[in-house]
């Protein structure tokens, strides 16, 4: 089930105090910590939330093949065995690629024996400055090629000019085009101008039926930051309280919330796990590259 309503009154009442959000974002990082086994367990959980991603002009079948195998085996098996987690089915959350590479990805994942979803960015990623018609066509093709998750980008121009209803309509069209695929809506927060706009865009995206809301494409000058993630999580919580519908947050590069679009993060996590198990810090060559 997904939402389909546009409550402009709610959107107009949104208030976000930027300095207070920064204060809280700073505090979150000092109020909680996990150590030892708890750290290992939380890191493994983080692995399962990663959208292992490659979004480059030079992506070809071979590096996507490697990425998919890494998605299936994100942490070295012997390390998982030591933690008695080898039977826990630890994989990344998804593999994320450009729509033209969906076919390669579906194939490679199948080869690796892994049934995690393929996520495809679409709708004129990363800027979203292509006509709606081609954006929708892109979604359609990606779904046809086997993408189970579609990462759309919103039209930042609509958010910046306060055309929330138009934005809602646009996301609704994407939603309908996604069909059975999950829709993950990338807000491009670094291009929204204010945290208030981030909050409003989050609400609109959820009202229009997004399964996930994501911070950023990784291509903006400012991408996932703690304060932005905090604002989005608060929007999700409010939305849930009001509607009973749970959306998810997905951030790129830094934060550790539900889905993480940071592929370099996986390397850091695997090294931490290595240290937890062995007591020694790993060299890069000790761990299989993605």
């Amino acid at each position: 089930m997904y939402s389909a309503f546009c409550n402009l009154g709610w959107i107009s009442r949104v208030q976000v105090n930027h300095p207070a959000v920064l204060r809280r974002a700073e505090q979150i990082q000092t109020r909680r910590t996990v150590k030892k086994d708890w750290q290992a367990a939380w890191l493994l959980k983080a692995v399962t939330c990663i959208d292992l991603t490659t979004l480059s002009g030079d992506d070809t079948e071979s590096n996507i093949h490697r990425l998919c195998f890494k998605a299936k085996n994100p942490i070295r098996l012997d390390l998982l065995e030591k933690l008695h987690m080898d039977d826990a089915g630890i994989t990344t959350g998804a593999v994320c690629v450009y729509s033209a590479r969906v076919k390669d990805t579906v194939k490679a994942l199948k080869q690796s024996g892994c049934n995690i979803p393929v996520a495809s960015v679409a709708t004129g990623f990363p800027a979203g400055q292509t006509p709606v018609k081609t954006r929708l066509e892109e979604i359609k093709l990606a779904v046809e090629d086997g993408a189970a998750e579609i990462d759309i980008v919103i039209s930042r121009n609509l958010a910046l000019t306060g055309q929330w209803e138009a934005l809602y309509q646009e996301i609704r069209l994407c939603r309908e085009t996604c069909g059975h695929a999950h829709m993950k809506t990338i807000l491009g927060t670094g291009e929204l101008g204010s945290l208030t706009n981030v909050y409003k865009a989050s609400l609109v995206a959820m009202m229009a039926g997004s399964d996930f809301i994501k911070t950023s494409t990784g291509k903006e000058s400012v991408n996932a930051t703690y304060p932005v993630a905090l604002v989005m999580v608060r929007a999700i919580r409010d939305f849930y309280w009001k509607t009973g519908i749970k959306a998810h947050v997905n951030t790129r590069t830094e934060a550790l919330l539900f889905r993480i679009g940071a592929s370099t993060l996986l390397g850091d996590i695997e090294r931490q796990i290595y240290h937890h198990v062995s007591g020694r810090y790993a060299a890069y060559h000790d761990l299989p590259m993605a």
Binding site: T33, V34, D37, H84
Partner: peptide, 17 residues
């Protein structure tokens, strides 16, 4: 009793720090 990594993985509980 001390939880295993798997327990923690499933419960997402906090531990002593």
């Amino acid at each position: 009793e001390r939880p295993t990594v798997k327990d923690i993985f499933n419960s997402m509980q906090y531990g002593p720090a």
